[in-house]
Simulated assay, not measured.
Amino acid sequence: MTATERPIRVALLAGEASGDVLGASLLEALQQRYPHVEFAGIGGPKMLKAGFHSWFDMETLSVMGLFEVLGRLPELLKLRKEVVAKIIDWQPDVFVGIDAPDFNLGVEQRLKDAGITTVHYVSPSVWAWRQKRIFKIDRATDLVLALLPFEKQFYDQHRVACEFVGHPLADEIPLTLAQSDARQRIGLANANQVMAILPGSRGGEVAQLGETFLQTAARLYEERPQLQFVIPAANDKRRQQIETLLEQFPQLPVTVIDGNARDAMAAADVVLLASGTVALEAMLVKRPMVVAYKVHWLTYQIARRMVKVKYASLPNLLADKPLVPEFLQYDMTVDNLAAELGRQLDAPDNRLQHQFEQLHKLIRQDASVRAADAIDVLIKKKRANQIDSKGTSK
């Protein structure tokens, strides 16, 4: 069977839980076009459920921070070499690197040099810091799929191929989600007030943020004994990590659930969360939030000199104004977090609902379908070129 006769092959690489969600949705959209498509690479449980074959454990790539990566650099370089070799041997029609730019761009560069079409799904925050990476991205990829409108504007300024596809979460999440229904689904139907706590999907994030988040919950519970807490665990390893932390706080009425961060947030009156995609999801379920984040001190010292934007969280970046409070690094204290969360519980800002809804509509673009459309164009172009090359060689 020739390359043009065999089923379409798509290699993908997702490095963390948010990438796994994006990847699973993309797989389903591609399967609509190519019922016999073959998928392989590195992915998580949602991608596996959608028919993906993962050669390595996705958890291996879930590393946060510049300094933290250094300790595992030999392991990561070895993995990159192995996965590149397997992809080249497999000869997919296209490779899609989902987020994880520090790892994926290196993979994409090597694959593109080997003649494989490469797509990077989710733009790196090149518009925010290390802006010269745009040239590396241009060399490593045939196309970038951007989730946010201001990202395409940046790529267009540098004449780098990019498509704004919108965000799959905005398509998946309804414009309104009933709080009572969400509470029923997670076993908190009789709760008076609920706070959702989301300290991250990676082990390093939970280690950095988890104790401070729980200390904040303990402070709020002292003042508001009617308050209940829910923490969604991204996977079994995170559940074990969270339950170990909770041993220090036996008095807290905490429900730990497996996954289902969306219902946890939809059930809440306020959300305390790590900066990242989860802040966008909290915006899409229209819940007040406090965004917090902390990294190794050396990572922070390097990053603070390079960041070019005013905000860390996606709701604020999309709105280009401080819709939600952010407490980063040294500002991430129990005093600061408890004071702001208490204010939001006691006097919620009703204007947020409308502002969040407008941003939801802005990025609701049927993203997975648009991403699959863009990838489909590249696949057809690649196969047409293979046919032309075969005809020319004759």
Results as ranks from 00 to 15, higher is better:
Glu5Met: 13
Glu5Lys: 14
Arg6Pro: 09
Pro7Gln: 08
Pro7Glu: 14
Ala11Arg: 03
Leu22Pro: 04
Ser25Leu: 13
Leu26Cys: 08
Leu27Trp: 05
Leu30Gly: 00
Gln31Thr: 11
Gln32Glu: 06
Gln32Leu: 09
His36Trp: 00
Val37Ile: 03
Val37Ala: 11
Gly41His: 00
Lys46Gly: 02
Gly51Val: 03
His53Met: 03
Ser54Val: 00
Val63Ala: 01
Gly65Arg: 01
Phe67His: 01
Leu70Met: 03
Glu75Leu: 11
Leu77Tyr: 02
Lys78Ser: 10
Leu79His: 06
Val84Trp: 02
Ile87Val: 15
Trp90Glu: 13
Asp93Trp: 04
Asp93Leu: 06
Val96Gln: 11
Ile98Cys: 08
Pro101Ile: 05
Leu105Ala: 11
Val107Phe: 03
Val107Trp: 05
Arg110Trp: 02
Gly115Trp: 12
Val119Ile: 06
Tyr121Trp: 03
Val122Gln: 01
Ala128His: 00
Lys132Gly: 13
Asp138Lys: 14
Arg139Ala: 09
Ala140Gln: 02
Thr141Tyr: 05
Asp142Met: 03
Asp142Tyr: 02
Leu143His: 04
Val144Gln: 01
Leu147Gly: 04
Lys152Asp: 02
Phe154Glu: 08
Tyr155Met: 07
Glu163Gln: 12
Pro168Gly: 14
Leu169Tyr: 15
Ala170Asp: 14
Ala170Gly: 14
Glu172Met: 15
Leu175Gln: 14
Leu175Lys: 13
Thr176Trp: 08
Thr176Leu: 09
Ser180Ala: 15
Asp181Gly: 07
Ala182Asn: 10
Ala189Pro: 07
Asn190Phe: 08
Val194Cys: 09
Ala196Phe: 09
Ile197Val: 13
Pro199Tyr: 02
Val206Cys: 05
Ala207His: 08
Ala207Asp: 14
Thr216Gly: 03
Glu222Met: 04
Leu227Glu: 11
Ile231Lys: 00
Ala233Tyr: 07
Leu246Pro: 05
Pro253Cys: 03
Asp258Arg: 01
Gly259Cys: 07
Gly259Tyr: 08
Ala261Met: 04
Asp263Met: 05
Asp263Ala: 08
Val271Gly: 01
Ala274Ile: 00
Thr277Lys: 07
Ala279Asn: 11
Lys286Trp: 09
Val290Pro: 06
Ala292Trp: 04
Tyr293Ser: 02
Tyr293Gln: 06
Tyr300Trp: 14
Gln301Lys: 12
Met306Ile: 15
Val307Cys: 10
Val307Met: 12
Val309Lys: 05
Tyr311Asp: 07
Tyr311Leu: 06
Ala319Glu: 07
Leu328Glu: 08
Gln329Arg: 11
Asp335Met: 06
Asp335Thr: 13
Asn336Tyr: 10
Asp346Trp: 01
Gln355Glu: 15
Leu362Thr: 15
Ser368Asn: 12
Arg370Ser: 14
Asp373His: 10
Leu378Met: 12
Leu378Val: 08
Lys382Met: 14
Asn385His: 10
Gln386Glu: 15
Thr392Arg: 14
Thr392Asp: 13
